[in-house]
């Protein structure tokens, strides 16, 4: 068994969907286990921090890390994995850009705890106690002041984007690794062009789009064969890296940007806002302001997966 490539998988702050994208390999997972040695995978195997710490540096061929960096424990763990791995692969939107978890950066950790432990309607007896940080004995991991993407903490060699990543992409990357083909630096397992290029509705997009009212999905019936944008539904396909095979579009849902920006875009949300603003009809300022106001939850829409990785997303770097 000695020459088999070594693989590790780790789950930081995330929903578990990325782990699911591995489980979705189904029977192929058995082949993976046969051809590679999975040395660390807390969700499935009993291996601990100390086991990883005991490994040689760069002993692991490829480590897949999903989830955002939310806790001090995450930093400790990913730094250790960085040291022990030849390649670190950011797995899924949260590791890539902070993901939905990154929207927590709109609030302080204190506000988050207040909300989760005291203000949610399902809390029976407010005000209850808040988790205590530090102290003697076993301790709760500490919330970091802000959520970070993986590459804001350690060097990342490759990215598998998506929320969750397509199982085919996962299969391909794992297949490469078990056959000894480690990803080149800065590989993004997706297309270089934005999603529109592979969108089946591209040809229905008119030369000029003039949106007079932004609609939400529950407010309208839309033509399933026509580009969402001229129908007043915001779709972030023009801003989002392609490579997902337009899965959401195929399910008649507009793109929400989980694959992140293309390689030359610095701030996904700013690009998205510029793109949508360019389609707003008219020049009258008050009318435009009203039109802008009709966009529900703009941060949650334009920065849904990328706030932590955005220019303003983590606040000042320490």
């Amino acid at each position: 068994m000695g020459g088999r490539p070594k693989i590790a998988l780790y789950w930081c702050a995330g929903c578990g969907g990325c782990e699911e994208s591995v489980i979705d390999l189904a029977e192929d997972l058995l082949t993976v286990a046969e051809k590679a040695e999975i040395v660390f995978w807390p969700v499935a195997l009993d291996a601990r921090y100390r086991d990883v710490a005991a490994m040689e540096d760069a002993e692991i061929d490829a480590t897949f890390i999903n989830g955002a960096i939310r806790l001090d424990d995450h930093i400790r763990m990913v730094r250790l994995l960085r040291k022990k791995s030849k390649r670190i692969i950011a797995h899924g939107s949260c590791a890539h850009m902070g993901g939905v978890i990154g929207l927590a950066n709109l609030f302080t950790p204190r506000q988050l705890l207040e909300c989760a432990y005291r203000q949610v309607p399902s809390m029976a007896d407010p005000p209850g106690p808040l988790p205590v940080e530090g102290g003697d004995g076993p301790r709760m991991p500490e919330l970091l002041p802000v959520v970070k993407a993986l590459d804001q903490v350690v060097k990342v060699d490759a990215i598998i984007p998506g929320c969750p990543p397509p199982p085919e992409t996962m299969a391909r990357v794992i297949d490469d690794v078990i056959h000894g083909r480690l990803p080149a630096e800065k590989t993004v397992f997706a297309h270089r062009k934005a999603l529109c290029h592979e969108c089946p509705r591209l040809d229905s997009r008119p030369e000029k789009i003039e949106i007079t009212r932004f609609k939400r999905l529950h407010q309208t019936r839309w033509d399933p064969d026509v580009c969402f944008l001229p129908q007043g539904l915001i779709c972030l396909g023009p801003v989002t890296r392609g490579g997902c095979d337009a899965r959401c579009i195929g399910a008649n849902m507009p793109c929400r940007g989980c694959f992140g920006p293309t390689e030359r875009m610095d701030d996904f949300g700013a690009g998205a806002i510029a793109c949508i603003a360019a389609m707003m009809a008219g020049t009258d300022e008050p009318a435009l302001a009203q039109l802008v106001d009709s966009i529900a939850d703009p941060v949650g829409l334009f920065y849904r997966y990328c706030l932590a990785a955005s220019v303003l997303g983590t606040g000042p770097t320490p």
Partner: peptide, 26 residues
């Protein structure tokens, strides 16, 4: 051309009508 998705966002904004889409390449 390796990065352009053919989304046409630029086309409507060009004040000089300098942009057009190559339909074959999108």
């Amino acid at each position: 051309p390796d990065l352009c998705s053919g989304c046409r966002t630029c086309e409507a904004l060009c004040p000089y009508d300098a942009l057009a889409r190559d339909e074959n390449e999108a």
